[in-house]
Write a protein that binds this DNA or RNA. Structure first.
Lengths: 350, 350
DNA sequence: GTGAAAGCGCTAACAC
DNA sequence: GTGTTAGCGCTTTCAC
């Protein structure tokens, strides 16, 4: 293996511009105390030589690494990838995160960690030691894992907690789950529905509670009852079948169901169909997440769109701001979710 | 911003084990010339202190960066992400690449570059200068972009060219396109089809020709004609509509069509349906790529499965081997594609 | 405002 | 086999 060196280094630029290394460094890092004329001269050399700083060297000398780590749950992510059902959480995250990183001269590194394992700490520690990221983006369900958040805080690394209210001290970003559930419920009420069932997500995720709370609140505001209309699920198709069967066995039967995941919504449609009902004629269904399957299935599902890309982009923005020392807003930031109306919702049958 | 230093460095380990830095370095890099007892002692200290080498420092001192760059076309990838149609090429690539990297202590960095732009070189140069990757994985359509391959060769960075025969000097990996097309054709012939149409992919991609060649070869082997049975497409739904209309206007009409992408296959089904035909009763359709939409649509599409994950994993393996100085196999390696039989193929109507 | 010197954590080359 | 020395490219600290 040939030893490979940096083609153009700060030295070349310094020599070319006839200045010291330090001055070039100041220009690169946009620091003050450089005369405009000097700055221009150095910049000209940089452009001429096509110089790009080595992040390894930058990191070495104790400054930034320009790397932001996006952490996802290994088990769940790999399961999604293997299932090949089109779940595009990762893709949306990359889209939002990478594009925002590019704007600021950072790079996003996507990593998987075993949230449930005892050695999360060891794994994460290793990842941090190896990469020395300038910031970390945490996603559910490990946004609130104290083993992770404590470690990050100890190491003084800024981190964003997506889907968490940020008690652990990170930057809190929430995808408007409660409001989204209210929107979905409102949509159904506006169509004329009164008995609206709800299938809850996995208890491990805080957003499961938020969504349930939103549904209840909107029902209450409309003077509608919701006792017995909530069934537990865990986001999976299998759990959706059970929950839908439970809800559709009720008398009077709900005329609409909100499912906390696309898989559970799909399951609800299938169960209804098996019972001889048609969607949306006999049952309206609203889905959560808006992964590609909602538009590929028939009827296409009306769904709450989780703003994954926007949220990840915001996480990057906030981390970069934190590195700059900018003041960050207090408390959680809510990124609003949208409702995409498709074919699975309609007024209830008379 | 607090200055953040490596918590545990090679020095701590050396001190703890009572040996020199160099010895620790040898143990980390699994080099020879270390007595077993010494190796154990050092390893014990490493484990005890939870030491992980800094890749920045490793890179700095001229050895490996343990980073492998996976390059994809920016425009196309972002378009896919925005469309949210469940195309999971990126996910499969990450799955194959990341898991294989993890096995060897490497990390995969996913990056987008503007293949069509004149400044690919500049962009890639910058990426390389910043990250100093140990290897690069190229995907179509830029696997054969001479601006890219020349640059990598000049810099002496090992690279894999997926979907290319590797004339440019990289590690060539092909997803058995010709064989896959033969398999698809064979499947239809075995069902009893004789007039089998083919919708070709974008000319920009070499695999478009390979797939066409496979179809022709298998038809010829079976003594079947194929003149006029090939229509041009560019992988898009829109182009699939045009191509399908052209093929289905032929008399006698083809009883089966192989489309070089899932979108074009979907388009074919839709066109057939509009013409009053049923799939697979009146027309069999085989699709290429096997993205999630093939299983989510109805009828579910019989499809050729592109082994994206396996191919990416192999690319990583080969790059790691190249870094070690191992001998690599000559010529292109073909990763076989599979045929997933679903609901869109059946014997032709009598 | 600019420059010189020291050092970040690690490995290559060479000495022992 | 093991240790010593000299950097890698950059930023920090501190002179000027």
């Amino acid at each position: 293996m040939v030893r490979r060196r940096q083609a153009v280094t700060i030295k070349h630029v310094a020599a070319d511009a006839g200045v010291s290394l330090q001055t070039v460094s100041r220009v690169i890092n946009q620091e003050p105390n450089v005369r405009a004329s000097m700055r221009e001269r150095v910049q000209a050399s940089i452009d001429k030589l096509g110089y790009v700083p080595s992040i390894a060297a930058q990191r070495m000398s104790g400054s930034r690494s320009y790397l932001i780590l996006a952490l996802n749950d290994r088990e769940r992510t790999i399961a999604d990838w293997r299932a090949r059902e089109g779940t595009d959480w990762v893709d949306q995250m990359l889209m939002g995160g990478m594009l925002e990183c590019a704007k600021h001269g950072y790079r996003l590194i996507f990593e998987l960690v075993d949230t449930h394992s005892d050695h999360v700490e060891r794994e994460l520690q290793g990842c941090i030691a190896a990469l020395q990221p300038d910031g970390v983006i945490l996603t559910p369900p490990h946004s609130d894992n104290p083993l992770i958040t404590d470690l990050l805080r100890r190491q003084n690394i800024p981190f964003a907690q997506i889907g968490s209210t940020g008690e652990a001290g990170g930057i809190s970003l929430i995808m408007g789950d409660e409001g989204a559930a209210r929107t979905a419920t409102r949509h159904l009420i506006d169509l004329g529905h009164q008995r609206i069932g709800f299938i809850k997500g996995a208890a491990e995720y805080k957003l499961s509670d938020w969504r349930e709370a939103g549904w209840k609140a909107e029902m209450a505001d409309a003077g509608l009852g919701f006792d017995g209309l909530c069934a537990a699920g865990d986001f999976s198709y299998r759990s959706g079948v059970d929950a839908a069967q439970k809800l559709l066995a009720l008398r009077p039967r709900p005329t609409a169901i909100i499912a906390s995941s696309d898989h559970m919504a799909l399951a609800t449609v299938d169960v209804a169909r098996k019972m001889g009902m048609q969607v949306p004629r006999d049952l309206s269904v609203v889905s959560f997440d808006n992964t590609p399957m909602t538009m590929l299935t028939r009827p296409a599902l009306t769904a709450i769109d989780q703003p994954v890309a926007a949220t990840t982009a915001l996480a990057v923005e906030r981390i970069v701001a934190a590195k700059r020392g900018d003041a960050l807003p207090e408390g959680p930031t809510i990124v609003p979710a949208g409702l995409i109306v498709r074919e699975s919702t309609a007024p209830p049958a008379k």
